[in-house]
Computed example of a mutant assay.
Amino acid sequence: MQGGDDVFALVLETSASAVRAGDAGNASPVCSVSVEAADDDAPERSERVQRAWRLAWQRLGRPLREDGEEKTSSEKVAPSIEHGSDDRGATSTHATQPVLMVEPALPWDATTRRALAQFAFYSLDVPGLFFLRSAVATTFCCTSVTALVLSLDDDGAIAAPVVNGYLLQKALQHEPGAVIRWHRGVSNRPIDQSPVPLSEVEHLLFPTLPRLVFDAISACDVDVRRDLFGNILVTGDAVPRIAGGALVPRLAEEMAEICPHLFKSRVAEASTKGVLHRGASPAWVGGSICASLGTFHQLWVTRDEFAAAPDTVLEERCP
């Protein structure tokens, strides 16, 4: 999965329930840590993510800058990424590795992005970073540029249209009520036990999922609707929890019923069995591919660029 220049970036993929971390260009992350579940006493989302990032960073063997303060000019590491070595352990240290941050399926707002970028620059001490939308990363994994990505996780159901490699946020549809938390009253099974039959959660998912997909595609320009209906990708941490792979066939049947007669729908699971390595997710693999491309490296946001324009640079460079 190597490609382009030898810049050994790191990939941090954050979902609603987990953070996966590892080297770009690899087929699977090095480690995965849990994100604290939200409740009335939980800190803000960015703080929960920071705690998970910190733990993942430690498991990767990277040192932390505990004070979180900006370095003086003499302390700063030059943010150039035009270096590297065939021997990763020799010259490619943590201080020279930019980090690709793959967002959750429900994208972070500008305030959260800014807080997490500040944490990455001044606590994780990274020289450069880039925020990549989860739906876009999933399309990279599936070698697509246009797709409707349907994600199911603890944030609920998110239908995200991606057209020519860009997430159409205004068309994104979210249903928090379609939450699959088996450990919170949906099922009597303890969390992390055997997957549940679709019949146990069917009332949460249908007809909600087909409606979300249809509404998201309908909110897009008519010229791209055929391609979106024809490439519906199902992903998310909750999908493997449904036994027998029954979700995708059922959704395909529902979409065939409501799809306009001029279009043909096609539904597939992004993490098709046998394609992904253990512990990997489509979004992490897509981020790994993306961060290993030489043509992508001009997009990194450096620490100095963030310090100069913290309110605008992320939205301009990481749409």
Rank of each mutant, 00 (worst) to 15 (best):
Val179Asp: 01
Arg250Thr: 14
Pro310Ile: 14
Asp221Gln: 15
Asp6Leu: 14
Val222Asn: 14
Leu212Ser: 01
Glu13Asn: 12
Gln97Arg: 15
Ser151Gly: 12
Ile232Met: 10
Phe263Ile: 13
Asp154Ala: 10
Val213His: 05
Gly68Met: 13
Val102Phe: 14
Ser194Val: 14
Leu314Gly: 02
Asp192Gln: 09
Glu315Trp: 00
Gly22Leu: 15
Cys220Met: 10
Leu293Asp: 07
Phe119Trp: 15
Leu10Asn: 11
Ala283Leu: 08
Arg113Gln: 14
Pro127Glu: 05
Gly287Arg: 06
Ala56Gln: 08
Cys318Pro: 12
Gly244Met: 05
Asn164Arg: 07
Arg62His: 06
Gly287Pro: 10
Val49Cys: 09
Thr93Asp: 13
Cys318Glu: 05
Leu129Arg: 01
Ala171Asn: 06
Asp67Phe: 14
Asp39Leu: 03
Phe229Lys: 09
Leu132His: 00
Ser218Gly: 12
Lys71Asp: 07
Leu116Gly: 05
Val285Ile: 13
Gly61Met: 08
Val201Tyr: 00
Val234Ser: 01
Gly274Trp: 03
Ala280His: 10
Pro310Ser: 11
Thr139Met: 06
Leu204His: 08
His277Gln: 15
Arg54Thr: 15
Glu69Phe: 02
Asp6His: 02
Asn231Gln: 08
Phe131Arg: 15
Ala280Met: 13
Tyr166Asn: 11
Trp53His: 10
Glu202Pro: 04
Gly230Trp: 02
Gly61Cys: 03
Ala171Trp: 06
Glu69Ser: 11
Ala268Leu: 11
Gly89Thr: 13
Gln169His: 04
Ala37Tyr: 00
Gly165Phe: 00
Thr208Lys: 03
Glu70Met: 03
Ile191Glu: 12
Arg211Asp: 10
Arg62Gln: 04
Gly22Met: 06
Pro98His: 01
Leu247Asp: 01
Arg189Ile: 13
Pro319Ala: 11
Arg114Gly: 02
Asn26Ser: 15
Val213Pro: 04
Leu100Lys: 06
Ala270Tyr: 02
Glu13Trp: 11
Thr235Ile: 00
Ser80Gln: 01
Arg114Trp: 04
Ala120Arg: 08
His83Ser: 12
Leu132Cys: 01
Ser80Trp: 09
Gln97Glu: 12
Arg54Cys: 10
Val7Leu: 13
Ser73Ile: 09
Thr91Leu: 15
Leu100Asn: 00
Glu254Pro: 06
Ser218Pro: 00
Gly245Glu: 05
Leu10Ile: 15
Phe119His: 15
Val149Tyr: 03
Val285Glu: 06
Val234Arg: 03
Thr302Cys: 04
Arg51Cys: 12
Gly236His: 03
Ala268Pro: 00
Arg266Ser: 06
Asp39Ser: 12
Ser271His: 05
Ala110Pro: 07
Pro190Trp: 00
Ser265Met: 09
Val33Gly: 04
Arg88Leu: 14
